[in-house]
């Protein structure tokens, strides 16, 4: 069952991820993780892919984890949680365990969109009971800000720099949430930590569905996106309001826009132009030069087209 989203109640929840971890100031990952971990009252076991979140929360002999946690490698968070959940199933069958446990895999976008994609697709197809949470900061931040297939077009990274000929990452990111939806997964959603109620409601649904769930969460990274750490939630909000990261869910075959994205689709809220967002992030600043005006136009056209396509899906599903 989902928990009450009343702040007073939430503040009384025992901590599952303690303070004192070593994530950067302003990193959204621990904020997202706490919101996810608070979204169920069931015990949770976590698998983590290699990445910022793993290295920053577990340097031996310390751990920030107050619940069972396992890391084995980079490309296999979904396979790792598959193994844990399989052991749980057989122990339950044999009467060796009685608790009703929930399973989460956390991974970055590199560990999800790229190297971990096969393991994720396989685990979803097999139908394990788990929620996969992608902490999506749009690049390989743990190795030093290299581009991934989640990186936005035009973003400057250490392997897609803002050059004089090629201004940042050439192509658009893979639309992973919809690829995951194409697995006919019971529940998939995009979320952002600035809208914590929306995120926690989605995480609560993900915990409760029968079968796998997937949560793709926008995770601003002050180091990689080059913004002031105090502005991470503001940046997340603008990213959603620009429609670069629409909030929506895919539940039992039905697409539904949520939060600010629903308001924008309904004409109740204005879309933030990409240029306004790009001004706030160092990784996009080079695109504001006159010579790259066509790139901004191309990016805006792409964002508009993708958002329109979501609106069409929601209209088909009669959720708009």
């Amino acid at each position: 069952m989902s928990v009450s989203l009343n702040l007073k109640d939430l503040s009384k929840q025992p901590s599952k991820l303690s303070r004192g971890h070593r994530l950067c100031a302003g990193c959204a990952e621990s904020v997202i993780a706490k919101q996810v971990l608070m979204s169920t009252d069931k015990p949770i076991v976590v698998a983590n892919a290699t990445g910022c979140f793993e290295v920053s929360t577990t340097i031996f002999p310390y751990t920030a984890w107050e619940i069972p946690w396992i890391h084995t490698a980079f490309e296999n968070a979904a396979a790792t949680i598959s193994g844990v959940e399989s052991a749980y199933n057989v122990m339950k069958r044999r009467g060796q365990i009685s608790e009703d446990i929930r399973f989460i895999a956390f991974a970055g976008d590199g560990g999800t969109y790229d190297i971990g994609f096969q393991a994720l697709s396989g685990a979803i197809e097999r139908g394990h009971q788990f929620m996969y949470v992608c902490l999506n900061n749009e690049a390989y931040m743990n190795t030093g800000i290299q581009r991934s297939s989640a990186t936005s077009m035009g973003a400057s990274t250490t392997t897609s720099p803002a050059g004089s000929k090629i201004p940042g990452k050439p192509g658009f990111p893979k639309d992973l949430t919809r690829i995951i939806a194409a697995h006919n997964i019971p529940y998939a959603a995009q979320a952002s930590p600035h809208n914590w109620k929306d995120l926690m409601r989605k995480a609560g649904k993900g915990f409760d569905v029968d079968g796998p769930a997937f949560l793709n969460v926008c995770s601003p990274c002050p180091r990689g996106w080059r913004h002031d750490g105090s502005q991470s939630m503001q940046i997340a909000k603008m990213t959603v309001e620009s429609c670069l990261w629409p909030l929506y869910e895919f539940e039992n075959g039905t697409y539904r826009l949520t939060g600010e994205s629903l308001s924008i689709a309904q004409g109740k809220k204005d879309k933030v132009p990409l240029t306004d967002l790009f001004k706030k992030e160092g990784r996009f600043k080079h695109l504001l030069a006159d010579r790259w005006a066509d790139k901004i136009e191309e990016a805006q056209a792409h964002v508009d087209e993708r958002f329109q396509s979501l609106i069409k899906l929601c209209e088909m599903c009669e959720t708009l």
Binding site: A47, I70, T72, A73, E75, N76, A79, T80, I81, S82, G83, V84, S86, A87, Y88, N89, V90, M91, R93, R94, Q118, A119, S121, G122, A123, E125, R126
Partner: peptide
């Protein structure tokens, strides 16, 4: 048998499942 038989999508995942299930306690 009442084994949980996990048909993985690769040997990398097969060994990962083996490790994780073993660490889980079985």
């Amino acid at each position: 048998v009442d084994t949980e038989y996990v048909t993985t999508e690769s040997e990398h995942s097969a060994m990962t499942v083996a490790i994780a299930a073993s660490a889980a306690g079985v």
